[in-house]
Amino acid sequence: MKRYLFSAALATLLAFAAGVLAQSNPALDARLKKLEEELRCLVCQNQSLADSSAPLAEDLRREVRALADQGKNDAQIKEYLVARYGDFVLYNPPVKAITWLLWFGPFVLLAGGGVIWALVLRRRARRGYDDDDLPPDPRAVDAGVEKARELLDDPRA
């Protein structure tokens, strides 16, 4: 009797566990987690939707999950949020006219630096040396030492 009860309890427990497992979907969870990490929480702006515990972030996570359950793909879910909150919700801003400076500005600066560097190199190559590279003229050094000595010996100083 006891053994029968035990196995019945075990069977119930297993059925329950199977039910729970069937409900949670690790692949979907991983996909949503990744998606939520690319979305910004609007309340605490330096946190992603995945990290934030703000009530709005909870609501938006719920909304994202509901959309995913409806069979929407990541791009469609992002579109849904951008329509309501603007590009600001995306941690990865889309490339468009207004973000050109943001995306290509650093490369423009890099190219500018390269041009200046090339110009400096070319000028040095043409001149053969730079002023600072010259060894001091020994005669000039001698003259300077002489002058210093004179000044030091000068009784008026």
């Binding site: 009530p55 709005l56 609501d59 938006l60 909304e63 309501r84």
Partner: peptide, 13 residues
């Protein structure tokens, strides 16, 4: 009550 319409209107604060 559940903030759904708020989301539609882009309410965040």
């Amino acid at each position: 009550a559940d903030g759904r319409v708020g989301i539609d209107w882009g309410v965040y604060g």
